[in-house]
């Protein structure tokens, strides 16, 4: 307390009036909320230690990293790994694969939780709503090792359910996992299956915060359900959707390794070889850490660009962005 007062006293002499006033106000507010700051402190420390300090390891992307020399001791090689990355045709292939799978995912699986949340919101029977929600959440808790096995079995051309149905309808059975086209469809559908239910939580929360009086007023004005959804629910959760979209954009170069690894097979390597499997193969099996660090850094950079530009667009469209 005493210390703080003297600093303010001293600054008064040096600083111009307006600035001084503001500084004093800030300090005063900080003091008033000192317990909040104290509570925030561990989080800041956490981020610093676990998110910022490890960043210094990124410099191995510019070095020829060997275990024995350590991160600092390894030889500095400039952009060698980046040059190799951009001159490798395989890089463009896996880059395109990764991007394509993510574009499909954004187009097809991003809207699903929103639709589900709106549908769930319209369900009036509490018991029914809760049980549907629980059923939708379950896939989120099943690991890909299990889900992958289930999917391969369900889609089996000889014994799988889907093909039994096809056969019953007189159609030829399809070996889904073997065809490059169907494999992508399976990939996107399995993503929806696993993530859509869990994704509804955020949107349901947003919907709950809508003022019920708006609906009452709409009903009095004679609005039907569809009009209520398009005129009240959707506009009210637009902000949430925008934020989720921005966050999703940051992951455009990520494909969950487990999912792809479980679903992949030799016949569809041309569409299923993505950055994460490439990193696994080259980085861990081939022990080329510097090269994969360069790839990781590039991936982060693209993510940053995508997040920033989406944020900009969203703001131009009149929504609140992330910042």
């Amino acid at each position: 307390m005493f210390l703080k007062q003297t600093t303010v006293e001293e600054s008064r002499k040096v600083l111009p009036k307006a600035k001084e006033k503001r500084a004093r106000k800030t300090l005063g507010r900080m003091y008033k909320d000192r317990y909040l700051y104290l509570m925030m402190f561990p989080v800041l420390v956490f981020f610093f230690i676990f998110k910022y300090i490890p960043m210094y390891g990124t410099i191995i992307a510019f070095k020829d990293f060997r275990f024995v020399d350590g991160i600092m001791g390894s030889e500095f090689v400039g952009l060698k790994h980046f040059i190799r990355l951009f001159s490798s045709e395989d890089f463009y292939r896996i880059f395109a694969n990764t991007l394509l799978l993510n574009v499909y995912n954004v187009i097809f699986s991003f809207p699903v939780p929103i639709i589900l949340a709106i549908l769930l919101n319209e369900v009036r029977n509490r018991w029914f709503k809760k049980s549907i929600q629980s059923i939708l959440y379950i896939p989120h808790f099943i690991s890909w090792v299990v889900l992958g096995g289930i999917i391969i079995n369900i889609l089996s051309p000889s014994s799988g359910v889907i093909n039994q149905i096809l056969k019953a309808c007189g159609a030829e059975p399809i070996y889904f996992m073997r065809s490059s086209f169907w494999w992508i469809v399976v990939f996107v559908c399995s993503t929806i299956w696993q993530t859509a239910g869990w994704g509804t939580i955020v949107y349901l929360a947003a919907i709950t915060s809508i003022d019920a009086e708006q609906y009452d007023a709409a009903v009095i004005d004679g609005a039907n359900k569809w009009q209520q959804i398009t005129k009240i629910t959707l506009p009210s959760i637009r902000g949430t959707i925008a934020i989720m979209l921005i966050l999703r954009m940051g992951q455009m170069l990520d494909v969950g390794f487990e999912q792809i690894y479980m679903l992949q097979n030799d016949a569809v390597l041309n569409v299923s070889d993505v950055i994460s499997t490439y990193e696994y193969r080259v980085g861990l099996e081939g022990m080329q850490y510097s090269y994969t660090a360069a790839l990781g850094l590039f991936k982060g950079l693209i993510g940053l660009i995508l997040i920033t530009s989406t944020n900009y667009i969203v703001r131009r469209l009149g929504e609140n962005g992330l910042w």
């Binding site: 030799d266 016949a267 390597l269 041309n270 080259v282 081939g286 080329q288």
Partner: peptide, 21 residues
Amino acid sequence: FTKINTEFAPIKDKVRMDVIV
């Protein structure tokens, strides 16, 4: 060889599978 093999092995597997099926 180690370097090329991480890139060549999946190509080999894919082409072989294309030939077979």
